[in-house]
Amino acid sequence: MDTATKPQQIRLSTTPSRADLEALKIGDIVYLDGLIYTAREGVYKKVIEEGADLPLDLPAESAVNFHCSPAATVNPDGSFNMGAVTATASFRFSKWIGPWIERSGARIIIGKGGMTSKDYREHFVPNGAVYLTTVGYGTGALLGRGIKQVKAVHWNKELGLAQAMWVIEAANMGPFIVDGDLAGNSLFERENARIAANLDKVYEGTRPAVLRRFGETDDRTDEVIG
């Protein structure tokens, strides 16, 4: 292993400048400082489809949307108990991500597994946003250590704790890996392409099932995410 290929590590504010984001390359390791909020399908539906007002000033307070449901509870006295935090798979939010980035001004989306480079080109690049993936998955305990405090939880009554919008203060929170950069590159897709070169050899000596399925493909460069 060449030490020059070791991923570089970067600390970043959760209200980053354009220049900060331009410096990121796919495969870089990132740690974050500042406010981060969670938002996934529950919040997206509420804001984008139902037109609810944002409960905090975005992106001034935070430009980082974490696709996450924390392992957390609200204590009877209103304080919070947050344990581990790990991302959930982002590809499922493709239909909302464009409107959400425009509405919230998010510059960093954190999740599991990235989104497609098509999503990056269509929704991220025009809005100057990048995608960070969590590591593992998942380094929930390490990420939990990076939470200085829980600032607020919004819509937990209507949406439940898992879908609620949690606002957390991060201190050197990470690691995250840059999957989608400002040029619209995807680290996952680059790796997929490298691995695909070996697949025909691995499949030697196997054969397709006698009973096929509708829509089935033997194109092993294909992906299961839509």
């Binding site: 924390p70 581990a84 935090v85 790990t86 929930g140 305990a141 250590r145």
Partner: peptide, 12 residues
């Protein structure tokens, strides 16, 4: 970290 903090390994 999970064992030291008595914190769940993974958020999911």
């Amino acid at each position: 970290a999970a064992k030291q903090d008595r914190r769940a390994m993974c958020g999911d």
